[in-house]
């Protein structure tokens, strides 16, 4: 499996060839100024994902797992009907 560490190492080696691809602060490579045909590269869970068509949006992992979200829409009555001591 290609890991982020290996991928970054390859990237450094490739050097000038990859230079036009912008590196975003979150570790995500995006089309940048390359135009529509540049590869879209995302890294999630240490693994790079590459869309060679350049048409995909890079995957942005959430800051957290939002584990409260599935019940956040409930009315107060419906919420307390299920979760007594939160």
């Amino acid at each position: 499996m290609l890991t982020r560490r290996d991928f970054i190492a390859e990237l450094a080696f490739a050097g000038a060839a990859m230079a036009p691809i912008a590196m975003l602060p979150e570790g995500i490579l995006a089309p940048g100024q390359m135009g529509a045909r540049a590869a879209v590269v995302s890294i999630h869970m240490e693994q790079p994902y590459i869309d060679a068509t350049g048409r995909a949006l890079p995957y942005l992992p959430p800051d957290g797992l939002c584990a409260g979200a599935p019940v956040a829409h409930l009315s107060e009555t419906e919420f307390r009907r299920r979760f007594v001591y939160l």
């Binding site: 959430p62 800051d63 957290g64 797992l65 939002c66 584990a67 409260g68 979200a69 599935p70 019940v71 956040a72 107060e76 919420f79 939160l86």
Partner: peptide, 14 residues
Amino acid sequence: FEEWKAGNLGGRVN
């Protein structure tokens, strides 16, 4: 309460 990380439970939980 960082709802973008936790889901919007802010103010409803202890």
